[in-house]
Amino acid sequence: MMKRDVHITARDLLNAMQFREGDLGRIGILSGQPQRIEMCLEILGNPIKNFSAFGYTLWTGEYKGKRITVGNGGMYAPDAALVTEIVCEGGVDVLIRLGSCGALRTYIDIDYVVIAEAALRGDGVTNYYVNDGFVPRAERELIEASSSIFDGKNVHYGTVWTTDALLRETKEIINRVIKEGAIGVDMVTSPFLTIANLYKRRALAILVVSDNLITGEMGFFDIRFFDAEREMVDKAFKLIEAIDA
């Protein structure tokens, strides 16, 4: 029978990577898409690679006097949970996710931005961390700080539903989560916020809209989506500049 409480912990992984306290910045940007990380690295001064584990790589550099860690934080709930836990354990205090989502309102168009105030847990991972009633939430101060940078009619704040099954976004399920208040759907935000909440870290998920489940419009390859992605990265750094961290 197994003797340890947990087979591998985030601390075990950090140790295996020769991690030293202080290697990571106090602020972390995570994104599943490598190109967003590349864009972050272009902005970051003197980035140094911290380590790669299971294909997830973290770099730490400087921006306007603040040390920032950026990394590909997973595309789906299980790997997002893994990376989020590693950075929390590694001492990152403020976590910003730069992701994408599908819109659950007709008025939220491709290239708009959804900022997740809370997550509706449709993923399987968070059940291993918290009880049924747990609602993962973004930090209020970060939401407020973001509102002066991500402003205008193209930005919407609300609840994001996280699913594990991209190809099972059925009418029944989607209409149910809309009734429960979700304005967007993604595959990461729930574990990202849940784990940040458990570690008592400050966290915010910023999501560019790639498609709309109500109108059926797909914008994954739309230039508006690419441009919005670029703008999200630039604005994330403005947010970092504005916050006290």
């Binding site: 898409q33 490598p34 190109q35 590349e38 864009m39 390859f221 230039i223 690419f226 670029r230």
Partner: peptide, 13 residues
């Protein structure tokens, strides 16, 4: 060609 992550960001930005 015109949806490859990384290339898109290079040629557009």
């Amino acid at each position: 060609f015109y949806s490859k992550p990384g290339r898109i960001q290079r040629i557009l930005y």
